[in-house]
Design a protein around this nucleic acid. Structure first.
Lengths: 200, 200
DNA sequence: ACCTGAACACCGTTCAAGT
DNA sequence: ACCTGAACACCGTTCAAGT
């Protein structure tokens, strides 16, 4: 621990983490548009130029937030995956974890999927997104191996399983779909995904 | 036609439309973040305070753009709907129209689904979104009446049919999914939606 | 290595005044 | 009714200088 002086210490100690934490709080409470580097600096008690030491510009901070979001989403999906469960509850579990993340972090999810990033960070974000998709890839691959889902290009099937869930998450994050309603109808939704809209 | 003076005429004539047109061009070319009222005014050749006459603030201009987007999306969906076609090609047609809109207007679609609008405009946007959903509502209602899709809450079924398509559109708009790939696989996707991931 | 303070070039918004 | 010009309070970013 660095010694704390009565007034503002010259070194913050861990300004980078403090900026990210404060930025995410602002994101959650007031939205991405209200995020100002100068205000963050004021809140933390540091000069307005200090953030520039840790993030080359505002976008770099947003990129870091987005990467952190993927990190947590990945962990949530991996934790929610039950590899030994039957297909339908297993897919429902993954879907529920994704929707729960959307409910808890709507603005962050929007940021994670906003394509305004620099080319180099874009590949990092794409890798992180692929990691999140990984849980769904594994599920479809194993289900296909067991003959529990139809034959065909595994990528197509993964997308078919995940696109709807992403759509629901995106609608929740956009406030276009009440979260409780989406979560309540999730079992039925996954059932339809597996069994189809046409009567059997 | 108002008389054109050699230099800037005092009245623009139709500044509101000019602002919207220029804003949408900027949105398309440089993204929403790069949109500045002062720059729009400069481009059009009007004082920086002039936009304030037509849009109470920047958000009001973005709201107008979003509403215009829904207008065009609605028309595209209605035009693409073939009420007498069999279920699967009919749904494919609607889906193709939606994805095409996403390909052609990625930033606008993002704006249409961004929930940063004032409460009163939010209901307008929600109404516009419901209108877009209307094509899917009619499709599922009629299909259900004919016994071509399973029984159940029509709202749930509409959502089940539309969520995946919205998810694909959102992934396209976010550059997370190559547009040509999504459009090429669309027939298969709709087939899976109707027939399910499980083998029959 | 990390931060400050001043400086620069931008913003959005408001408002008296002009036409 | 519609627009201007000045003014105000903010931004993000840079950079010499401080510790």
């Amino acid at each position: 621990m660095p010694p704390m002086s009565q007034s503002r210490p010259y070194h913050h100690g861990d300004l980078r983490s403090a900026l990210l934490a404060s930025a995410e709080r602002t994101l959650r409470e007031k939205g991405a548009a209200a995020l100002s580097l100068r205000e963050l600096a004021r809140d933390i008690g540091v000069s307005h130029a200090a953030p520039g030491r840790h993030f080359k510009d505002k976008q770099a901070l947003l990129d870091a937030l987005a990467l952190g979001g993927y990190d947590r989403l990945n962990r949530a999906l991996v934790a929610a995956d039950l590899p030994d469960a039957p297909l339908e509850p297993r897919l429902t579990g993954l879907a529920r974890a994704y929707l729960t993340f959307a409910v808890d972090n709507p603005e962050l999810l929007e940021l994670m999927f906003a394509r305004k990033h620099a080319p180099d960070i874009d590949t990092q974000l794409a890798d992180a997104a692929d990691l999140s998709l990984g849980s769904f890839v594994r599920l479809t691959a194993e289900a296909q191996r067991r003959g529990e889902i139809v034959e065909g290009d595994p990528e197509h099937l993964t997308l078919a399983a995940a696109a709807g869930i992403h759509g629901l998450a995106s609608l929740i994050a956009a406030d276009a779909l009440p979260a409780d309603e989406a979560l309540a109808g999730l079992d039925d939704y996954v059932h339809l995904l597996l069994h189809g809209l046409k009567p059997r």
